[in-house]
Amino acid sequence: MTKYILKRLAMMVLVVLGISFIVFTIMSLTPGNAAQMILGQSASPEQVAKLEAELGLDQPFFARFFGFWKGVLQGDFGKSYQTKLPVFDEILARFPTTLKLSTFAMLIATLIGVPVGVISAVRQYSIVDGVSMVIAMLFASVPSFVMGLLLQLEFALNLRWLPATGVASWQSYILPAFTLSASTMATLTRMTRSTMLEAIRQDYIRTARAKGATESSVVLRHALRNALLPIVTVIGVDFGYLLGGTVIIESVFSLPGLGTLMITSIRMKDTPVVMAAVMFVTIAYSLVNLAVDIIYAFIDPRVKSQYAKG
């Protein structure tokens, strides 16, 4: 198991290296010039050249790429072209918002989606099942910005229960987190329902019933644990995705998250910020996925013995 985790961590280093190279290449190849962006259209070519030299943009591609990595290995991600502030501080300042938002959203999605899915499966074709499947369909198909705006309109403007924008208090997170959770919740509900329906049909469920097990024990102890793998996968993938920041929700609710930072930096050709943010997200995503794979082993002993083989 430890060996497996170490192997995965080693692979993560390669993934980060690869991604950093790809993103750096894209940033260099796309048209536009950071110095020009900072100085504006009216700046003279001399001024632009001078700033380029200052930022090191006049050096060849590989020199810049290795220069970037040399800094990273020394714990220095460089300074933003725009703000001149250390990139790392900026990301650390923004990440908590994104982390809180995505954790909150995942909690809502899991705590509602999984139980509703289980109930839908156990009471297949009942009214509860029908209604929750229709709502799930709705949540999965309404674009998040539409849902965000509708929720703002109702709960912030009409009812005045919750703040519409900003991160002033924890209540500010409720609307964006709910908006963000909607599609995951829908996926989880449907996924839980279908894997539970499959699990309930298995022979070992009949064995459990033949033992005289109660319905709740049959559903929760015997069926749900077997149905859990795909559910955990969805939670993991979506959580990793949300950690990368969500541009649309952040702009609808004016939240200072990673998503907006990344978009503005890309637009401004602010390579150090983009690089650091992408690497941060990559690592977060990989760690979440590793965590998911470790959780697999605790859910299913067969997976654990696979890991032991290496």
């Binding site: 298995q202 070992y204 009949r206 064995t207 019933r209 015997h222 067969r302």
Partner: peptide
């Protein structure tokens, strides 16, 4: 009555045990 007075052995042993529960615990459950 199920388990206590009447119990049943099913056809396919490959699928009639729960794969994620220790065999001892599956006996213990009864």
């Amino acid at each position: 009555i199920r388990g206590e007075s009447i119990s049943m052995i099913f056809q396919d042993p490959m699928t009639s045990l729960n794969p994620v529960i220790r065999v001892g615990d599956q006996i213990l459950e009864a």
